[in-house]
Design a protein around this nucleic acid. Structure first.
Length: 509
RNA sequence: GCUCGGUUGGUGUAGUCCGGCCAAUCAUUUCGGCCUUUCGAGCCGAUGACCGGGGUUCGAAUCCCCGACCGAGCACCA
């Protein structure tokens, strides 16, 4: 039994005990979820949202949001909103191209929002709720300079504006909406508890004035903008969100918003806060503003530069979105900070593409050696596990290139994969034969090679920088977007076929 | 300084609420073996962890106390 391979065992088991096999299969498909159950989740009634800030295309960390939230949506047959929280036209200025780039990224990761909204389209709704809150006595306009208020707040003292009549606040808030104040002159504060033991929760700002117009035409007239705690809090209720998942930096936000929910008599959604993700393997810091700066300065070729820790970069390298999703989901939702190893993404991707990806030879920094006395062509398989896909006929024409590290010492042998064994003598390769036993029994190393003349220049773009090499001639007929595995180097996505040169993006080994 | 949260192998994760089935799960990494005219692939296997100290208990990764370390908030950012 142990001598059989997996498939053989299955067949054997099928013959001996069909019932047992059925049981085994049922176990395989058990409802094993990588993520913990959502609290109070009801099948078909889970409503969640992604709330990206469209201030730039996504870095890799952002992929966690759709990966986890989308996975929950699918699992509970729920509903998912993508709401762009674009209420700061100045310090987190929206990038008009990012709205679509983000929707694209969500699609690439394998999910589709049931609804898309932009906070900057919903300003009247926020104003209305602000007015309602004022009438409930839950907010007051305040003209204290920020630093002054901060001092009062830290010592637990109210500012004089807190005692204002709601009518006055109403008037002043209407003036804010009308744009009658400049930035910094007036804010609307939510009345919480000025002596709350956590200073972060005391009378927080709900609306402030911003002079810079919003980049979206439709929102460019507004000067009075809500802050996230207000905007997001109101929207989550209005959209019927039942479950919120977001970063630990927003832990106090939930507590601030509860004051709002209490005034309105609403029930706060179930909320989960997760820690920050870091990703190993990158030199570039994973922050939208850092990447934006590097792209603008020309240090990166764009958001999809292979060195950039972005969703677009992995996509261009030929990594499948669902591989990223799988790796992100495996991080779970714990509140501690986590490090995601790129190798986890690579492993998930390799599992998906290995069987279907054809092999090819690529030689970097090729060393040329004349080949004496061998056959005219080498014929390595297109895919070693799939004989039916045939062989690649590679002409040798008397000389090959191999990588410097693979050149054997004088007098030693090497096996040119798909060709045969050669011996290094007097600066040339002398053909020895095609008896594979030398590899089996005498440990002759197996290496890849390309013809010295009939080859194709390849620019391989990697995380560590660009590498030039020569590939077997067949690489020129690969279509852009196809994947190949350069044997002993790794998987790569064909990006472009230029005049005399193939451009490929390196994915992983 | 005030407030809140966290700490399981190199990495991530399960288990912690309701102590025993946990000498701790799964994946990845690393290492080793195997297969293949012999892939940095695949298959098989191995190494490897409960932050520290006390306490409760027949029994603690799990409960309690103290400490260390890490992080977040205290913004007219999200």
């Amino acid at each position: 039994m142990n001598e059989l391979d997996e498939e053989g065992r299955q067949k054997r088991l099928e013959a001996l005990a069909p019932d047992l096999l059925a049981d085994l299969e049922a176990d395989d498909e058990g409802d094993d979820h990588p993520l913990p159950d959502l609290p109070n989740a009801e099948e078909g009634a889970v409503r969640m949202r992604l709330a990206p800030n469209p201030n730039g295309p996504w870095h890799l960390g952002s992929a966690r949001m759709p990966a986890v939230i989308g996975t929950y949506k699918d699992r509970y047959d729920g509903w998912m909103l993508c709401r762009f929280d674009d209420t700061d036209p100045e310090t987190k200025r929206p990038d008009l191209a990012a709205y679509d780039a983000i929707l694209d990224a969500i699609d690439y990761l394998g999910f589709e929002p049931d609804e898309v909204a932009r906070a900057s389209d919903r300003m009247e709704t926020y104003y209305e709720h602000a007015r309602e809150l004022i009438d409930l006595g839950g907010a007051y306009t305040c003209s204290c300079p920020a630093a002054e208020f901060s001092e009062l707040k830290n010592s637990g003292e109210a500012c004089p504006h807190r005692e204002k009549a709601p009518e006055t606040t109403r008037e002043e808030f209407d003036a804010m909406v009308a744009g009658e104040y400049d930035a910094g002159e007036m804010v609307l504060r939510v009345c919480t508890n000025i002596e709350h033991k956590n200073p972060a929760l005391r009378d927080w700002v709900a609306f402030r004035m911003i002079d810079t117009p919003h980049p979206r035409e439709a929102a460019s007239e507004h000067r009075c903008w809500p802050l996230l705690d207000f905007q997001s809090g109101i929207d989550d209720h209005l959209f019927g969100v039942t479950h919120i998942i977001r970063g630990i930096d927003l832990q106090d936000s939930a507590k601030r918003q509860r004051f709002l929910y209490d005034y309105f008599g609403w029930e706060y959604p179930d909320v989960t806060h997760w820690g920050h993700v870091q990703i190993d393997a990158y030199d570039v810091k994973m922050s939208t503003s850092t990447i934006k700066g590097l792209v603008e300065a020309g240090d990166l070729d764009g958001w999809d530069d292979p060195r950039a820790p972005t969703v677009a970069s992995l996509r261009r390298r030929g990594i499948r979105g669902d591989a990223i999703t799988e790796a992100m989901v495996s991080l779970g939702t714990s509140t501690s900070n986590v490090d995601l190893a790129m190798s986890a993404i690579y492993a998930a991707n390799r599992e998906r593409i290995d069987e279907e990806t054809d092999r090819a030879f690529l030689v970097r920094d090729g060393v040329e050696k004349t080949v004496v006395g061998g056959p005219e062509t080498g014929e390595p398989p297109v895919h070693p596990n799939h004989e039916d896909r045939g062989v690649r006929e590679i002409p040798v024409e008397g000389a090959v290139l191999i990588e410097p590290d693979d050149v054997p010492a004088n007098g030693e042998r090497v096996w040119l994969k798909g060709y045969g064994c050669v011996r290094h003598t007097r600066d040339a390769f002398e053909f020895v034969g095609t008896d594979i036993d030398v590899v089996r029994e005498e440990d002759v190393p197996v290496v890849h090679w390309v013809p010295a003349d009939d080859n194709r220049t390849v620019l391989l773009r990697t995380m560590e920088g660009d590498v030039e090499g020569r590939a077997e001639p067949g690489i020129a007929s690969r279509d852009p977007d196809e994947m190949v595995q350069f044997e002993r180097i790794g998987f790569a996505r064909i990006d472009a076929q230029n005049e005399g040169e193939t451009v490929a993006y390196y994915a992983h080994s």
